[in-house]
Design a protein around this nucleic acid. Structure first.
Lengths: 217, 217
DNA sequence: TTTTGAAAGTGGTCTGACCACTCATGTTCT
DNA sequence: AGAACATGAGTGGTCAGACCACTTTCAAAA
């Protein structure tokens, strides 16, 4: 019977402490020595837990200052993780697929809401396309997630977006303008099914495009 | 000029070593002491890197045996992240909504697949209802997620299920049998839209039924 | 008043020491 | 010979203490 790993308990303890003390993103958490004494474990054990959380981007450490709850704006872990996890095809497919799930649900939610489907932002996107301006695909997608109103879904999506390479990272090309305008039109007339199928079309097209362009970092 | 974190380099070094030595999932990687000597750093630094990778589910350590490349590419990160993500996002609505998103996507995926939509399990559910047997709502939902084939989505769903408490925990009642049979029929004739709308109906009904349980921690 | 610098506090790293556990090897007993 | 046992080497788990590099603070000096 293997003992449960201490440092895992520590991770949970720290999390509990954070919620109990009402520590918010950006706030400082107790020092390593302090945590070690409070939780009655060695400092190295504390550090193993903290380093794990740091690699996940959940906390941020600054030498000489302390350890802080992160604002969820960090990438650090992503490159590392992608080289490990995403080598597995099934995993990578799942990430893409799950991301798509959230995007499709978001666009459906928007269409079903009279307010968010009539927002000037859609017109603005449409006008940008007409005027030959480009924008980041990711910005468009993020807008969908934000306006869907589901903050949890948004957070999950942001995570997945970090994991899922760069088909979304670029700017839209003229090849895509027709598809996007279709989507925008569908949103503005609150046609959820058409908007969803249009978005599916676009995403699938994007992923097909990116499989031909393969880079290594 | 802040020095870059050592243990982050170590993570990359270990990754490089793994690919160079052609270590595959399930294989053993060098011991901590060995790594420390090879990479010319202290053992504690090595451990911080390894613990991070372990929390991510990338490696597995067994006391007395060694450290191994993780066999199953599990997304343990989701579990850890969730405890942090959900802490400030206590809007139970978002959790329920996101859960629904995954359930609906799952049932759609099943309908669009000739194999999974024709599995005997659906007939089995149907027969159980006819014979007056009951089953846990959660078991039905889990079946959906499992058969959707997206393991990441399943992981997320399991998490959300833990956080979203009650409505799914019970057994089906006679009030629901008609709705469920509708859903099952739609699945078996691969009617994704009908299956999805039927499931929506059921879920909304469930949530309406239990509109008195509101906890905050 | 402003500047300076020493001290305290913090994370980063290393070392050496135990402990608990697994496994292979050798030894003893039957 | 075969089986049960004992031992020791190797490994991860944890701890304590020691430096180092860095930041902040604040009292002393200019």
């Amino acid at each position: 019977m293997n003992q449960p790993k201490r440092y895992l308990d520590i991770v949970l303890d720290i999390r509990k402490m954070i919620s109990q003390e009402n520590i918010r993103p950006g706030d400082r958490i107790p020092s390593e020595r302090e945590l070690a004494e409070t939780l009655k474990v060695g400092r190295s054990t504390i550090r193993e837990a903290l380093r794990s959380l740091e690699l996940l981007g959940l906390i941020e450490t600054r030498r000489g200052e302390g350890t802080f709850l992160s604002d969820h704006r960090n990438h650090r872990l992503v490159e590392v993780l992608s080289t490990f996890i995403l080598q597995d095809n099934q995993s990578q497919r799942d990430v893409q697929e799950t991301r798509k799930i959230h995007e499709l649900s978001a666009i459906r939610a928007i269409c079903q809401n009279e307010v968010s489907s009539q927002l000037p932002v859609w017109d603005s996107f449409s006008r940008q396309i007409d005027e030959g301006e480009t924008f980041l695909r990711e910005d468009f997608m993020r807008e969908l997630l934000v306006l869907s109103g589901n903050r949890l879904s948004l957070k999950i999506w942001i995570l997945l977006a970090q994991y899922s390479g760069n088909p979304y990272k670029g700017r839209i090309t003229t090849d895509e303008t027709a598809m996007i305008k279709n989507i925008l039109a569908a949103i503005m007339r609150q046609d959820a099914d058409k908007a969803a199928s249009g978005l599916t079309l676009w995403i699938d097209w994007l992923q097909k495009e990116s499989t031909e362009d393969d880079h290594d970092t």
